[in-house]
């Protein structure tokens, strides 16, 4: 049990995918201008990340290893992720048009989120089992969502600040992200490797 909690603490805080591992920076910068869109993106990413890390684990365990095709791993995972994203989009579209409207463009965008592929590959590298893979994906997604929502609320406030001309927009946002990453270094050592 405690190792599962450690996986969650590790992925959400200590090895946060955005602020410590620097993965998934494109949606982090791209959709953080408004709190509402950030919340939508977080929900969609959480679902896709958890599903895709489960699916890629299954694909690796029951398809690639028995057939001796480990060298196709990256390509297979990209395919699996694209499939999960497309599948999610179709299901959401049919079952809940309202949610589909809220998530809108963000669903297909998740395919290009490097954190999703990163989680799938790291699961293999760290030799995670089924539950561990699912938790790792879920924790990574929760960490991503938390940081994205906090960041978007900060950006809404910075947008009305008297920032020097040369630093307006993305530059001050990147500086803020850097300072946030500095704060997250305080969690170092919480989980012993």
């Amino acid at each position: 049990m405690s190792e599962y909690i450690l996986i969650l603490v590790s992925t959400i805080l200590v090895n946060n995918f955005v602020l410590v591992k620097f993965l998934g920076l494109c949606p982090f910068m791209g959709v953080s201008r408004k709190l509402e869109t950030a919340t939508g993106m977080s929900l969609a990413t959480t679902f896709v990340l958890t599903m895709s890390s489960i699916c890629s684990y299954l694909a690796n365990e029951y398809l690639l290893i028995p057939l001796g095709l480990e060298y196709l791993r990256t390509m297979t995972f990209i395919l699996v992720i694209a499939f999960v994203v497309q599948f999610t989009e179709m299901v959401v579209h049919k079952t809940s048009p309202l949610l589909y409207q809220v998530l809108g463009i963000f669903l297909p965008l998740i395919t290009t989120n490097c954190a999703v592929l990163g989680v799938a590959l790291l699961n293999i590298q760290e030799r995670h089992g089924f539950i561990e893979s699912a938790l790792y994906g879920f924790g990574a997604a929760v960490g991503f969502s938390m940081v994205l929502i906090l960041f978007s609320a900060m950006r809404e406030r910075i947008a009305v600040a008297d920032v020097p001309e040369a630093f307006k927009g993305n530059s001050i946002a990147l500086i803020t992200a850097g300072l946030m990453s500095l704060a997250f270094m305080g969690f170092a050592g919480l989980v012993k490797p």
């Binding site: 906090l150 300072l179 704060a183 270094m185 305080g186 170092a188 919480l190």
Partner: peptide, 25 residues
Amino acid sequence: IIRNWGGYPDGIAFAVILMNMAVPT
């Protein structure tokens, strides 16, 4: 948390900027 389980001896400064980060939310 940081004082007891973290790598740095005093967690005050980290705690303050981590919560600063959460203030707009």
